[in-house]
Design a protein around this nucleic acid. Structure first.
Lengths: 227, 227
DNA sequence: GTCTATAGACGGATAGAC
DNA sequence: GTCTATCCGTCTATAGAC
């Protein structure tokens, strides 16, 4: 029989903690936070009920960790893209289309990943923009603070002739359009029963981008165009 | 002392049933469906816990009635507007902007009514587009079926040179933009802490309309313009 | 780290008096 | 129609054995 040597442990990347996070992510999308119990999560993750409290400290802390582990990476990529654009421009104002692409392109890229749960997470995130739960919204706002600040600033500089309130609203509209599109990727956009069955996010990105840029460049409400 | 005569009762328009519906509407926005208990609702409505089951049959039936009583009127107005446009056009194709205005203008008009709970309801509705709860989504889809059918058909006829899949997606994007804008009207759009403090929906309508029409008229992803 | 067992609060629903 | 009292299930969290 084999005797356990002092060899290094086999580095179980798929340990209980990760299985819980993956199961929670999936179940939160399907049932919402309040509609998903710790029993459902640990059941799906083949873990013990007490494991959530042992590993995370409670259900709320688990919810935060589900977001944190992926959102940190997504927003870091967004900031990298923006850094790169600004370095290339060397002081010149950026093209609005490049800014928009840096923000929404990264999101849709993650939503295209069905292998490692990227799509599942993005559907959860999209849904959570409208989450009633106060502490979840508060947590999201904090995670987004820097990204919002940087991207809005870049848009302000890129469109100096457009009133800032207008840019603010239009960025708001753009996020809403993206969120609704991504949230419906699971195939449950019953709202239009004819619904976009074409679920390929590779085709969604150009569709969304041209819509968003069309909206961003639209004539201002009072009249007057801006390129 | 006064003796109760056989006079007609004072027609209590604000009876228990309505108070429950109003309280439920408000609490659902603040806490979500699962986060709102029957005890919370009846407490806020100064009604007895058993009243929900007596008047509606259960919590799920109450949720449906909260939507039904207002959504039926909203969608009827939308269909009326579309009927009127089509009657005026007398067979000619409609202007896309008029179709969009008939759909989204009515919604924003209701969202502007803070006196009779219209805003509260529209915030609830906007949130519910992304609701995980299966039976709520199913119910919404049924309530919207005719309106979607009519408006998508009108857009298809108004833009015969645009692929229908494209129109479908863009209508999808437009609904998402509107929903996110309305859901944030309560002042809790923490996402951008700079957030549009300007909450006047009278100014929101022109802003949103020009954004939506810009997106609808944007060049198609593969290239090629369409007015 | 994992498990069982259980505490303690709260959920929706209902029976039956008034 | 309204109310009290209660049933019964599920929830999160924790104590303590292994």
């Amino acid at each position: 029989m084999l005797i356990s040597m002092t060899s290094t442990p086999p580095a179980p990347t798929n340990d209980t903690r990760d299985r819980i996070l993956d199961a929670a992510e999936r179940l939160f999308v399907e049932n919402g936070f309040d509609g998903t119990s710790m029993r459902m999560i640990t059941g799906a993750a083949n873990a013990n009920l007490a494991a959530i409290n042992y590993h995370f400290g409670g259900k709320d802390a688990l919810v935060q960790e589900v977001f944190r582990r992926r959102l940190a990476a997504l927003n870091a990529r967004r900031l990298d893209e923006l850094d790169r654009l600004e370095a290339e421009a060397a002081g010149a104002p950026l093209k609005p289309s490049r800014i928009v692409e840096a923000f929404f392109g990264t999101a849709l890229e993650l939503a295209a990943d069905t292998e490692h749960g990227g799509r599942t997470f993005m559907r959860l995130l999209a849904r959570t923009y409208n989450e009633p739960n106060a502490f979840v919204r508060q947590f999201l706002a904090e995670e987004y603070a820097e990204v919002m600040d940087r991207f809005l600033g870049a848009l302000f500089r890129a469109l100096p002739e457009v009133p800032r309130a207008e840019i603010l609203w239009r960025f708001h509209f753009m996020i809403g359009a993206m969120a609704f599109a991504i949230a419906g990727l699971g195939g449950l956009s019953e709202l239009m029963e004819v619904g976009p069955q074409d679920e390929d996010p590779a085709r969604l990105l150009p569709r969304l981008m041209s819509f968003l840029l069309g909206g961003l460049r639209a004539p201002l409400p009072d009249g007057g165009l801006q390129g």
